[in-house]
Design a protein around this nucleic acid. Structure first.
Length: 710
RNA sequence: GGUCGAGUAACUCAGCCCGGUUGAGAGUGCCUGUCUUACAAACAGGAAGUCGAAGGUUCAAAUCCUUCCUCGACCACCA
């Protein structure tokens, strides 16, 4: 963590060590020649034929004139370098391991200040490590034992902060034994599947793999910042580990104690967070109430550092998982796909983003980033800033027209059958939205939750519901109908704000407070009594009312919406100015469809900007009309005497026809395949048949239409 | 070296776990109109993708499997 690796250029020196009692020399390669002063062996691979006869032989370590053995060790890669490795147990982690395996002495030749120790010998003692490196090379040259020195690029460990090159050193440290805690965590995952990771693939495996390979944990750090190690020493060197200095004194039988200067690894302290913050080790009310917690939201690289350790200490001290679930977020990268870092200076300052686009918009962006990495782009924030603006303006419209109205009124539950189509529709959409949003949040599908809310608010509520109800809502004269319509508008808005609140806390609170009729009754039951003032923060999160989900209303409203859209499309394609009103002829063989259109006359007229609407069983329109075929056998014609350009209209309809034919060709091919009809589920097959027959019907009508203007 | 992710419209991303209901989507950008009294940070309409490549499984593949290519991450580290 605190060490960073950088590839750097250096020299790889080939040093020769004479074999005792022979003329042979063994060549070893090293990037740190000064460490040879602390060599206690040379290792070769046991299967390396070049050195087979040398295993067990004794070498004469130059300069030091010390005798060191040749040992065989699997660690050595015969393909690399000379196939012989100098072993410096005191200054290299791998060499240390080898040293243990072959029972080699550890000779410390570099001290904590990177100067050579007395053990480095006369002539080196007190010397800076790099000076020592030069001198070692010089002496090898003089002795004729320097075979060569070649340029070499290798990775160097540097301190993350000060960039000083790190030298491995043997030091006394405090360790935490991990075997028991590891088993506790692994057992929890095996037996209860906790903590449950989202996404489960691949993070559950990442987590368990890491635990399975866990070694004892070095928990002491030579820093000043942190919890000091609870170990005390007596003047004669005895050590007492205790909960407090008092305990240590009692145990030691003396007051003359010095506490260990080291501090705990910050992650050790953090590992206790889920319960230490709740008052542990005291059995506080907070601890009883809030442990275990529900979910930890965090980044990938924290799984090892923190998640696993909280689980282990939680299991050890609380005997229970610290959290049920872990949600792993993606990482926000810069626009080139690079990780943001202080050294690269490619980070984004959230405060700047807040200033530019607002806190809610920023939060919405971050909330909708899933578990894959994503590049930061201002566009997304800007889009959500626009969304916030949209919410603001929609609410402004509702409030401008709120006289005589109040949240919670308007939707008379006893008279649902009498609600207008668009009211039944918006309530259905609202409740579906609530259902989908709750489900999405439950499954940690935040992106989906945000998308659902975004489209409900913008598309359903703003683009359609407000427009559909505008006439009644903004009537000049006050009336019960007007108040009811206004109340319905406010009620839908109010619930939408509550649904949006976790994602956009500020704007929703600001607006919610202003709505007439918000009071304690909207608060979550836990807060209904005693709340100083209603706040959206304590309001209950809207849950879907299944009885208000009305598929029929949705499809009927959709038919009207489609019709309006088609007429708008015709208007644009035919270059009809917005100010110009057109006549509309709608035809449908279905009585029920006609009555739906009949009921929506006023709205169609306003939103499609028409002067007159005729609704009939059969389409009888002037030749000079633009037409469109809708689903369910309905057709619409826009008479355009003198305005229509038949060439344009034919082209428009032909494009339409092409689309239909492509689609029907696909479906026909599918049905022509006997394997499909035989093996696919029956409902799938009949669904395709239905779709095809619908398309065939539309194609037929379109053909007629095309012929009519020939 | 080990492990794992990503590649879908010009850009940033959903969808993939659990194959067919998304007759491939969103936002931005682009094109054409419009200041229609909530909103031009908007409204209305439109164009745009053989879902990295090649195979395979299947009646059916963006979705499952294999291989490859290109990016990226993490872990371990070579004297």
């Amino acid at each position: 963590m605190e060490v960073e690796k950088t590839p750097e250029k250096g020299k790889l020196s080939y040093l020769q060590y004479p074999v005792k009692g022979s003329d042979r020399r063994v060549t070893v390669a090293t990037t740190r020649p000064e460490t040879m002063l602390g060599d206690t062996a040379v290792a070769v691979n046991p299967n390396d034929e070049r050195y087979g006869d040398l295993v067990g032989a004794t070498l004469l370590l130059p300069i030091q004139n010390r005798e060191i053995p040749v040992v065989a060790d699997e660690y050595v890669d015969p393909q690399f370098g000379t196939g012989a490795v100098k072993v410096t147990p005191a200054h290299d982690p791998n060499d240390y391991e080898m040293g243990l395996r072959h029972d080699l002495p550890q000779i410390v030749v570099i001290d904590p200040n990177a100067r050579m120790t007395e053990a480095a010998g006369e002539g080196f003692f007190g010397l800076d490590r790099y000076k020592a490196r030069e001198r070692v090379i010089e002496q090898f040259e003089e002795l004729g034992l320097l075979e060569k020195a070649v340029d070499y690029e290798f990775s160097i460990s540097r301190c993350e902060r000060c960039k000083t090159v790190i030298e491995p050193l043997i030091m006394l440290q405090w360790f935490c034994r991990m075997d028991e805690m590891r088993e506790l965590a692994l057992g929890l995952m095996r037996k209860e599947g906790k903590p449950h990771f989202t996404p489960q693939v691949p993070y559950e495996k990442v987590y368990t793999d890491w635990l399975e390979n866990l070694k004892d944990w070095t928990i002491s750090r030579q820093l000043w910042w942190g919890h000091q190690i609870p170990a005390w020493y007596t003047s004669d060197g005895r050590v007492f580990v205790a909960r407090s200095e008092e305990e240590a004194r009692a145990a030691a039988g003396t007051d003359e104690l010095t506490q260990d200067q080291d501090v705990l690894d910050t992650w050790f302290s953090s590992a206790l967070w889920p319960f230490s913050t709740l008052g542990w080790p005291d059995e506080t009310d907070d601890l009883k109430t809030f442990y275990p917690t529900s979910v930890l939201v965090t980044a990938r690289d924290i799984i090892f550092l923190w998640v696993s350790r909280m689980v282990m200490t939680g299991m050890k001290f609380m005997r229970e998982t610290p959290f049920q679930d872990t949600f792993i977020t993606g990482t926000v990268l810069d626009k080139h796909g690079q990780r943001m870092s202080k050294t690269k200076m490619n980070g984004i300052d959230p405060l700047d983003v807040f200033d530019k686009y607002g806190v809610d918009a920023t939060r919405l962006v971050l909330a909708s980033i899933g578990s894959t990495d994503t590049r930061w782009n201002d566009n997304q924030v800007e889009a959500y800033r626009n969304f916030a603006n949209k919410i603001w303006n929609a609410a402004r419209f509702c409030l401008m027209n709120s006289e005589g109205a109040s949240v919670g009124r308007g939707f008379d539950a006893s008279a649902r059958e009498e609600w207008a189509l668009h009211d039944r529709w918006i309530m259905s959409r609202l409740n579906k939205t609530a259902r989908e949003t709750n489900d999405a949040i439950e499954a940690y599908q935040f992106h989906e939750a945000v998308q659902t809310l975004y489209h409900f608010f913008w598309d359903d509520f703003c683009d359609w519901y407000i427009e559909l109800s505008k006439q009644e809502v903004s009537a000049e004269e006050a009336s019960d109908e007007r108040s009811a319509a206004r109340s319905r508008l406010l009620s839908v808005l109010e619930q939408a704000l509550r649904l949006l609140h976790p994602f956009m806390p500020y704007i929703t609170e600001e607006l919610w407070q202003r709505l007439p009729g918000v009071d304690e009754s909207l608060l979550h039951t836990a807060y209904r009594e005693g709340a100083a003032r209603p706040t959206i923060m304590l309001a209950s999160y809207p849950q879907a009312d299944a009885s208000l989900i009305d598929e029929r209303a949705e499809s009927e409203m959709q038919a009207v919406i489609n019709l309006i859209s088609r007429v708008r499309n015709i208007r644009t394609e035919m270059n009809i100015k917005p100010s110009e009103r057109v006549r509309l002829i709608i035809a449908s063989p279905e009585e029920s469809a006609r009555s739906v259109f009949e009921a929506s006359r006023e709205q169609m007229a306003r939103l499609a900007r028409t002067s007159e609407i005729l609704i009939r069983e059969r389409l009888e329109a002037p030749r000079a009309s633009a037409r469109a075929v809708l689903g369910g056998g309905a057709e619409v014609a826009v008479p355009l005497e003198g305005l229509i350009d038949f060439e344009t209209e034919r082209a428009r309809l032909s494009r339409e026809m092409e689309k239909l034919q492509k689609e029907s060709a696909k479906l026909e091919a599918q049905l022509a395949n006997p394997q499909f009809v035989e093996r696919a589920p029956a409902e799938k097959v009949s669904e395709i048949r239905e779709r095809l027959s619908d398309i065939t019907e539309r194609t037929r009508r379109l053909t007629e239409t095309l012929e009519a203007i020939r």
